[in-house]
């Protein structure tokens, strides 16, 4: 029985030591830092509905950019067209990937941009879309055109105040490459994301499907969670301005932690 005791205690203690050492290592240096709001970090839905879980966590909400040649749309597909060379540089074998679905995913490094050119581009497209529909209504002031114009105006407001400003910029198999490229941009973060290769034979197009972030939820410690515990889940269709901001750091292992949470004054 003594040998079981020794081996068991070794497993328990060594495993916990390794995990906590990894956490310490990750937090020994900040690789990137962002001040995000409820727009990018909505409260986890389960927190609102689940009475069995007393913790508070937020989800990381990100978007893909609207292609230059397309008009404004609220939903953009989570895949990116890449060249064959880019596809192979990401570590996918173009010879073996011959179909669009059913391929194996890979964990790659993603660069995400916060409140940068990609968000400005989305906002500009929303405004252009609204202007276009305003012209259409002025030329033909029907009820239908008026509804479309008003919806477009709501989309502009949503883009300004509600929707996430965190956009996918690019993926890479090399962390060093992305770090060097965006070293001087303080609105960029590099995280790990699960990516699936696709090949559309009809268009002879290579794409990468951006499935999800490796860490898509962030747990708030008690000290920071208390500020958000009383916030009610808002399911209405009205414009929702962010109620809080969260300062988040990412460390050496690209794992995030919360620095502080601030409630925002509601206007």
């Amino acid at each position: 029985m003594k040998k079981y005791l020794i081996i068991g205690l070794c497993i328990l203690i060594a495993t916990n030591a390794m995990v906590l050492t990894g956490v310490t290592y990750n937090r020994s240096e900040t690789t990137s830092q962002l001040l995000l709001t409820e727009r990018e970090l909505p409260l986890n839905y389960m927190h609102a509905r689940n009475n069995h879980n007393s913790s508070v966590s937020v989800s990381i909400k990100w978007r893909t950019p609207i292609p230059t040649f397309q008009e404004y749309q609220t939903y953009t597909p989570r895949n990116q067209i890449v060249t064959k060379a880019e596809f192979e540089k990401l570590g996918f074998n173009a010879t073996l990937i011959t179909k669009a679905y059913g391929n194996e995913s890979k964990e790659l490094y993603w660069a995400l941009e916060h409140e940068g050119d990609l968000h400005q581009s989305a906002l500009q497209k929303a405004q252009e879309h609204y202007k276009q529909l305003t012209s259409v209504y002025e030329e033909a002031p029907t009820k239908e055109n008026r509804t479309r114009q008003l919806n477009a105006k709501k989309l502009v407001e949503r883009e300004k105040h509600e929707r996430s400003r965190l956009f996918f910029k690019e993926a890479s198999a090399s962390l060093n490459e992305l770090s060097s490229k965006y070293a001087n941009q303080h609105n960029m973060i590099i995280v790990k994301g699960i990516t699936k290769p696709q090949y559309f034979s009809d268009k002879q197009e290579y794409r990468i499907a951006l499935n999800r972030l490796s860490i898509s939820q962030i747990m708030l410690p008690l000290e920071q969670a208390s500020a958000l515990k009383n916030l009610k889940y808002n399911s209405s269709n009205k414009l929702k301005k962010p109620r809080y901001s969260i300062n988040i750091d990412w460390g050496l292992k690209l794992e995030p932690w919360v620095n502080n949470v601030t409630l925002l004054a509601q206007q």
Partner: peptide
Amino acid sequence: NLTMLGEIFNITPSPNAFIV
């Protein structure tokens, strides 16, 4: 123990947990 430490510290999931 390991699952919750992963959630508390937002640790990237790892298959090494299975072997342990």
